[in-house]
Nucleic acid binder design. Structure first.
Lengths: 213, 213
DNA sequence: TTGTTTCTGTACTCAAGAGTTCAGTTGGCG
DNA sequence: CGCCAACTGAACTCTTGAGTACAGAAACAA
């Protein structure tokens, strides 16, 4: 009967509505990554070229909008790693491809927009506890799983010899990507030359341990 | 001449004032780490058992108080690493001591209060850009330098053989501490058994590469 | 003791920003 | 065309929290 008081009116639909929705999320993403969660709804609405009321028609609250933004960014993040893993799986020269993978991983992982979002999630963990878990699950965890499968595959094909794949996966991330994330988490960045040595040496270290003899 | 309009009245001095100052910083630290920068000044004053006005007599603003809290925590953080490095320097059995060092490092680095503060700094980077640099400089950078010296020393004594000490230092941190920091930065924690394998295996990996032959 | 500094408690100002209201407009679908 | 859902814009409410004012009490120093 009539309107359910616990259900808010369905979000707008239609051509225009869809356009607006996209614009809002894009604007929100832009502003959140640039100014943090402090970015104002008025500001976001303005940037999206839309009235504030429209924003609230699409997303019931700021929290909801933020969740949408972060959620959207996650899918993209994992895509990268999935592609990398695919390329790695068919490798002939493991060293070569592992180096490429590491390079691409670092490049993707140090993209300023992505880093800003990462740090944003970190900072708003208290406000969005679920978001941390979601981020973990649909980002890092899936990437780790993907890399794990590939490493297992490479073991089966006799290119690598890894006793504890779970550990090896973490080590690979640790030796390549993590130093950058750590630096970025306090607003810094690794000097280019150190980053380069770290990358080469990291892959070397990894192979020295796990390359099939 | 009288009072300089650009200079605020000197902070209170005296026995009682000192006691209060301590209490305020302690309370602020407690509340900031527990509730983030959103913790209210009223709340802090109450926790310190002091009037809000008193807080403002000692620290001109919330920003100032926050800076004081973080600054204070930094000194302590480095102390740990300095001690570890000292113990490591005189090592006979490098493997053994390296393992201990790693264990202690992880233990210290995963202390909830410290992690909370780390993540807090990450989240407030936009508000306090200097703080990131200060944190970097007086925490990680000093610790890295300390470990670097020790590794160099161990090379000189023929226990290790490291070509690029700067890289080796980062690798050591990466293989032991960083996975924990990364997990914590999105609100997670490594499963105990994985953490354990990671630690042992990390040290092994490190030694396999750098132990003098 | 006496004078000064510091502290208390309460009540206040002020600014910012989330979310709402509403009367009126516009885009798009049948 | 003609209707309705979606949108505008501007003014408005409410909450929250930083920082202040002030008059009186307590500590402390000389």
């Amino acid at each position: 009967m009539g309107k359910d008081s616990s259900t808010r009116p369905a979000p707008p639909s239609g051509r225009r509505a869809e356009r607006n929705r996209q614009a809002i999320v894009a604007a929100a993403r832009e502003l959140f990554t640039r100014e943090g969660f402090e970015a104002g709804m008025d500001q976001i609405a303005a940037e999206a070229g839309v009235s504030k009321v429209t924003v609230y028609n699409h997303f019931g609250s700021k929290e909801e909008l933020f969740t949408e933004v972060v959620g959207q960014a996650m899918g993209e993040a994992h895509t990268t790693m999935a592609e990398l893993a695919a390329r790695l799986a068919g490798a002939d020269d493991v060293r070569e491809v592992l180096l490429d993978t590491a390079r691409a991983l670092v490049e993707a992982g140090t993209d300023p927009a992505r880093l800003a979002l990462r740090n944003l999630v970190t900072g708003e963990l208290r406000r969005f506890p679920e978001l941390g878990r979601a981020y973990q699950h649909s980002g890092p965890a899936r990437s780790a799983a993907a890399l794990g499968e590939v490493l297992t595959e490479l073991c089966a094909r006799g290119r690598l010899d890894i006793a504890d794949v779970e550990v090896a996966v973490v080590q690979f991330f640790s030796l390549t990507l993590y130093p950058h994330l750590i630096a970025a988490s306090i607003g810094g960045a690794l000097p280019a030359d150190l980053a380069d040595r770290l990358l080469r040496d990291g892959v070397e270290l990894f192979l020295q341990r796990y390359q099939a003899s």
